[in-house]
Design a protein around this nucleic acid. Sequence first.
DNA 1: CTTAACTTTTGACCTAAATCAAAAAATCAC
DNA 2: GTGATTTTTTGATTTAGGTCAAAAGTTAAG
Lengths: 187, 187
Amino acid sequence: MTEFFNHFGQYIKVSAQLKEELTKRITFKTFAKGEMLHSADRICTKSYFIQKGLLRIYFLKDGREVSEYFSCEGDWTNSPRSFIQHKLDLYYIDAIEQTDVYILEVHDLMFLFNNFPEMERYARLSMGSTFGYLIERITSMRFTTAKEKYEHFCEVYKGIYHRIPLGMVASYLGITQETLSRIRAEK
Amino acid sequence: MTEFFNHFGQYIKVSAQLKEELTKRITFKTFAKGEMLHSADRICTKSYFIQKGLLRIYFLKDGREVSEYFSCEGDWTNSPRSFIQHKLDLYYIDAIEQTDVYILEVHDLMFLFNNFPEMERYARLSMGSTFGYLIERITSMRFTTAKEKYEHFCEVYKGIYHRIPLGMVASYLGITQETLSRIRAEK
DNA sequence: CTTAACTTTTGACCTAAATCAAAAAATCAC
DNA sequence: GTGATTTTTTGATTTAGGTCAAAAGTTAAG
């Protein structure tokens, strides 16, 4: 669980007491490649912290799977609006590779928010980072060629972009797999 | 300042003491139409809460202004990464209409975070809402026609979309003004 | 008012990327 | 290992929306 506590340690000082409560509330699970972690027909009550592996968040558009984003080692993953606002949303989560995760239930997280003010700070700060990533992504989606979009993707997902199948990358970028295949071929 | 405290009241209980500290630290200013609130050559140390009016956050791409988003009555505005991470970023902020704002300096905000744990909660919760909006926007930008993008924009900015000049809307959507003009004309 | 400076619309033409189709390559299951 | 399924590549064709250019409308300043 070292990587798990280190993650919090990036933003706040993790007291022995918080560590104990986290340990008590967290569970561990391994998902096989292709296995579903979350489906759009349920409210998302779990957040997954990836110890090892790769997850994909996607939704269905006219029957086709469109990747929303990818998460790897050291990331939290859930269906954001479903988890935060406790309502249904359109996202599915599955495992691109065999993936080991720590699981935290939303009611346990609420307990932590209510009893450890530093957890509120942790949430504020870590959300702040993700914020920047989302804004940069929106920026990079407009007035850019398919090639530029792909190059931006490779930068952001440096180190893991080769672990993600081409078709999933294409839908993440909002281009067809044929176009992405041609971009990869040309250089 | 009622609208200002009401905003916090949506997320947390605002104690008399917090109210007092907020009042002490906030300043008020009016910007004329077209006036700049923030420029990319400076670090953004101020956050603006709009009492009345309309602001635009934009950046320059090949010399053209690209709208990142718009903020109106009841919204906070700043250059997000610059304000949060205290570094330079590429965004400019100007006033689309004459705009009245409450101004909070980043160091005053930090004081509030350090002395009022409920402010951390406020930040977590209000960021959570914005999060949902950003993700939905990313979703709506891929595999959609220019017309669908515009319709989504009108929904999200219902009530204020007619206050924003066409060219600014077009760049927000990542389409040309000519295309947007034709979309508006056809129906 | 009147001129200047933007903003929006309209028209003609062009191109990046979509679509459709099928072959080739890689991966999986037994 | 072998056939079946899935993923990726390649080719031909189409199209939505971009570019360029200019006219029409609108707003602002003196």
